[in-house]
């Protein structure tokens, strides 16, 4: 019986994998909370958080993006059918500066820990 189950598993599950991919470094919520609009400058933001992933020019103002992406993927290949699930979430921070390089706004989303390994049907 055990041999039959092993044989069945070998035949029905010729391949399966899980993978976790990340882009850039995790963002520290504690560091982000130290950014104070009206007080913090662009130089201080760069010192605290490092180089941004993107800089957008908005007239004379600028906006910087910091992002940490997590993608979790799980798949199981049965005899004829493959099951594949992908979940991609990210922590994202946008900081907005005025013409003088003073911080005016901070927008945050922290969802990287919500990424899950999910195979359809399971």
């Amino acid at each position: 019986m055990n041999k039959f189950l092993i044989l069945l598993a070998v035949v029905l599950l010729p391949g399966c994998f899980i993978s976790r991919t990340t882009v850039d470094r995790p963002l520290d919520e504690g560091v982000v909370s130290r950014l104070v609009p009206g007080e913090t400058t662009a130089a201080e933001v760069a010192q605290l958080m490092g180089a941004p992933a993107e800089v957008v020019q908005l007239g004379l103002r600028t906006a910087w993006r910091y992002e940490y992406k997590v993608q979790k993927q799980a798949a199981a290949f049965l005899l004829l059918v493959g099951l594949r699930g992908v979940d991609a979430q990210s922590d994202r921070v946008w900081v907005f500066f005025d013409e003088q390089g003073g911080l005016t706004h901070v927008g945050t989303s922290f969802a990287s820990d919500q990424a899950e390994y999910a195979v359809p049907g399971f």
């Binding site: 005899l79 004829l80 059918v81 493959g82 594949r84 979940d87 991609a88 969802a111």
Partner: peptide, 22 residues
């Protein structure tokens, strides 16, 4: 026939589920 084609990778099916961002 379908099984034979599947075993030689001629026929394959994929059930996919993807979620990107909130």
């Amino acid at each position: 026939c379908v099984l034979a084609l599947g075993l030689c990778s001629c026929v394959s099916g994929t059930l996919a589920q993807e979620r990107w961002h909130e």
